[in-house]
Amino acid sequence: MTDGAQSPDNWASNREHLEVEVPEGAVDPKLTGRRLSGALQGFGQMWQKTYQVRLDGADVTPEHVIAEWKANYGEFWPDNQHFYAPIAGIEPGEVGVINASQGPITLSTGVMVLYADERSWTYMTPEGHVFAGWVTFSSHEDADDVVVAQVQLLIRASDPIFEMGFKFGAGRIEDRIWQHTLRSVASHFDVDAEPTTEIVCVDKKRQWKNFGNVKLNLAFRSMGRSLISPFRGR
C-alpha cells in the first residue's frame, strides 16, 4: 500500500444521519434522516462471509480490478437487483440506492460508502436494511502472485424478522448474489473461475436489546408501497 493510499480522506466524514439524493428511476428508500447501523447495532447472529475469486491469467493489478469494479459495480449484480450508483461515484460518504425485486415486491434500500482507497472500498448499511454491518470489496495478490477479487461481509440480521428470513433462505440468496458478482468480475477480465465461499459465525448470540429495530424494517415499507401502488392514480 502506498503512502498516497493512506489518506484520512479515504473515510467518509462523521454524520449523525444520512442524506440521500435519489437517482432518477430509482424507488426512493426514504433513507434521509436514518442513522448508519453497524454489526454491533444489529439483532441476529454475527457472520463473517468471505467470497473470493482468483483472476488467474488476467494481466491486471489489484488497483486496476478495483477501478473497473467501482466503475461497473451495478452491472456485475444479478438481473433482479438494481444498484443506482451515487452521481459522484463510489466515493467516501456517497450513498447508493438498491432496488431488489423478489416476486411482486421491490425492496428499496441503500448503502453508504464508508471507506474507499485504491485497493478496497466498504459499504455501511442504514437502519432498517436487511442486515446491519459492513461489506468490503477488495483486491490483492495471493502467494502465487495471482490477483484475487474479494467480497467480505461482517453482518448481523437487522431485526427478528430479517433474522428469521436468513434462517429460511435469505442467507443463501445473499451468498448467490456475491458469488454471481465475483463470477461477473472474473468474466469482465476474461477469466472463467468459480468463487470460493467461507462462512464463519463470529457471535452466536442474538442481541435482544435490539429487538425494537423491527420498527425501522425497510421491507415492511417496501411491501406497503408495493401493495398500494396498483391503486395509485385511480
Binding site: 454489526a39 454475527m46 463473517q48 464508508l114 471507506y115 459492513w134 468490503t136 457471535d203
Partner: peptide
C-alpha cells in the same frame, strides 16, 4: 497508530466479540 482502514474496523469488532466471550 499510523493508519487504519475499514478492514481494521472489522478486526476490532471481532476482537470485541472475543473479549465479551
Amino acid at each position: 497508530l499510523d493508519y487504519m482502514n475499514s478492514g481494521g474496523i472489522g478486526l476490532l469488532v471481532t476482537t470485541l466479540i472475543r473479549a465479551q466471550r
